[in-house]
Amino acid sequence: MERLEALGERWPWFGTALAVHGRVGETNGSSTASAATVQFFVALFPLILVVIAVVGFLSSGDDTIAADIIDGLGLEGTAAQNMQDAIATAQDSRRTASVVGIVGLLWSGLGVTTAVSLAVRTPWQRKVEGLKGKGFGLIWLLGGAVTFGGALGAGALLNRTPDVVPRPVTAAGLILLGVALELGFFLWTFWILGDRRAGWRALLPGAVVGALGFEVLKLVGTVLVPRMVASSSSLYGPLGVVFAVLAWLTIFSRLIVYASALNAVRYEEDHGFTTLEIKAVRFEGEVPVEADRGGAVVDVEPQADHS
């Protein structure tokens, strides 16, 4: 660790990276990211019901939609047949799926906003605001759905050039559009769900890192996830698909935490910090003398014997 710190003093960017990683560790950022991952995953189920309803309504009047979806995902063999059967089922259950899916999506959306708020605020050592926080969370959902959905849509179109996308629109153009939407998503997320007293300029570095990191994650997902879905469905069944989706969501959740931690570290470097006194459980024979940012005791001294 001393060698890493020495390198951090020589290379400021590396020192900032170490500080960001340390901030995430001290504030239990990994656990927070795991909680966000679970909420994202739970929200997928009502979202899938909504998608099933939409696909059911569309495919009921167009027999080519099923083939287009299978070709777009690159599915073959058993995976393709499973998707064909799922679309056929969606046509029969589209009305029920739409009602249940929308209600469930609204309910799980509140859990997602709370988890993302916690992921954004934890590196800043700030609590999530109760009812007020939920209100801002609903506002965040509206803007986040547009920017996040648009970014995913731009990534999905990369697999459809030049069949769907006009020739003047190149892959580079779609990537730039995706990065711009992702930058807007992270800025929107940090501004609405974080502490706005820091100002939007202080949120820009983390938003840039988040956008670039998400673009890489999205491109990897665009190329690899369809293949992973196809191979996982053939080899391991639905469980393999679940593992692939969980891995993607896990990286995405940690990207939010680390990007927010970058903003917190840089803001603290410019504006300083405050030392607070905290409470800790007392044990006989020792005196806590130091705690980390998460409130955990990291150093103790023997209690003096005055007898």
Rank of each mutant, 00 (worst) to 15 (best):
A119H: 10
Q125D: 14
R126Y: 02
K127W: 14
K127D: 15
L131P: 01
G133P: 03
G135I: 06
G137P: 05
L138Y: 03
I139F: 12
W140H: 12
L141W: 13
L142F: 15
G143T: 07
G149P: 00
G149Y: 08
G149F: 03
G150M: 04
G150I: 04
L157I: 05
R160D: 13
R160V: 13
R160E: 15
T161P: 05
D163R: 10
V165S: 10
P168Q: 07
P168R: 09
A171V: 12
A172R: 05
L174D: 02
I175W: 15
L176P: 01
L177G: 15
V179H: 04
V179M: 07
V179Q: 08
A180G: 10
L181H: 04
G184L: 03
G184C: 05
F185L: 07
F185V: 00
F186R: 04
W188M: 12
T189G: 00
T189I: 04
R197M: 03
A198L: 13
R201G: 14
A202R: 09
A202G: 14
A202I: 02
L204Y: 04
P205I: 02
V208Q: 07
A211H: 06
L212C: 08
G213Q: 09
E215P: 11
E215N: 04
K218W: 00
L219V: 01
V223Q: 06
V223C: 03
L224D: 13
L224N: 10
L224Q: 12
P226S: 05
V229T: 08
A230Q: 14
A230R: 14
S231G: 06
